[in-house]
């Protein structure tokens, strides 16, 4: 099953490679991994989307907690949560396709953030599924380039991940 694991870790050189090294050394899946410093600059927050049986996810959390630089780990799937991903997508938009493309972007609540003679660059956020659906709806032939951040997530309500 798919899980989103959020990690608070020391914002230090090498911490990222410890986490990614752990996943490859132990054969755990990584669907996506994102990381950035938090409002407390000495800490980074990492979000990993992974999949595996309950036992595997339990081992992943334990192994992550064991890393010396990891301060806290939560499996967001343990409680209600919100998940978002950002995609920047550059599409073909020559004169005759422009209106169609704009409409499509509006339907998915995208924003056109860059325009050139033949292209649009659209910014879209949502769940991974929504982004997939947008790509599907456009069709491969018009897509020139995509850049996705991978998912990041947060628990709903009172639950917080902080030290």
């Amino acid at each position: 099953m798919r899980h989103i694991i959020s990690i608070l870790l020391e914002n230090e050189a090498g911490a990222l490679s410890r986490v990614s090294g752990l996943f490859s050394a132990r054969g755990y899946n990584i669907e996506s991994l994102t990381v950035a410093p938090t409002e407390e600059p000495s800490l980074s927050r990492m979000t990993i989307v992974t999949s595996g049986s309950g036992d595997v996810i339990e081992q992943i959390t334990k192994q992550l907690n064991k890393l010396v630089e990891v301060v806290k780990v939560v499996d967001l799937f343990e409680a209600p949560h919100i998940e978002r991903e950002l995609m920047l997508i550059k599409v073909r938009a020559s004169a005759k396709d422009r209106d169609d493309m704009k409409r499509m972007s509006d339907i998915f609540r995208g924003r056109i953030i860059d325009v050139s003679e033949d292209t649009y660059t659209i910014e879209l956020t949502g769940t991974g599924q929504k982004l997939d659906a947008f790509i599907e709806a456009l069709g491969r032939t018009v897509i020139l380039e995509t850049a996705r951040t991978g998912a990041c997530g947060i628990s709903r309500g009172q639950r917080v991940l902080r030290i």
Binding site: Q59, K62, N65, K66
Partner: peptide, 8 residues
């Protein structure tokens, strides 16, 4: 002492 040794 190591939780990851348990139920591995």
């Amino acid at each position: 002492i190591d939780p990851s040794s348990i139920s591995k």
